[in-house]
Amino acid sequence: MKGMSPIVRSIVGLIAGFVMLYGLYVVSTGHLGPGGGFAGGVIIMAGTVMLILAFGGDKARELMEERRCHVLQGAGALAFLVVALVGLWYGGFFVNFLPTGRVHHLHSGGAIAISDLAIAMSVAAGLIGIFLALIIGCRAAMFKKDK
């Protein structure tokens, strides 16, 4: 899978960092405003998809190989479960075990921020992996068939 024109490449190279940063912002302020783990994870995935489409499949594999996606997806899901199980030790399943902190401050909400981070990791890695499998795998098979 080839990349796009130099104009697209340079624009994407400028923008991609900001997209990722916005995704991290949405993840980390999920307990303060609209957003959260799923939305932030999808933004991070969108930035990566933009990079993959602009720079082509070979570059994408250097950046994010499928195996790493699988590991990160599993680790995110596992982290969310660990948050639930640690709460079990504090009195019940999914009990908020960290201090709630002051409302409207970034350091508040207890375990909500950790859960957001875990969900974002799982969602972003899983969707990037499915994108890689869908686009690169299918197109490689198709080109082989055309020849």
Binding site: G30, G33, G36, A84, P99, S108, G110, A111, I112, S115
Partner: peptide, 21 residues
């Protein structure tokens, strides 16, 4: 209860975290 300013996230990941799981 949860310390979250965003009530939606407070419900999703604290009160109803089991559903989110």
């Amino acid at each position: 209860d949860t310390g979250a300013a965003n009530t939606v996230m407070g419900i999703l990941l604290d009160y109803r975290a089991y559903d989110t799981l």
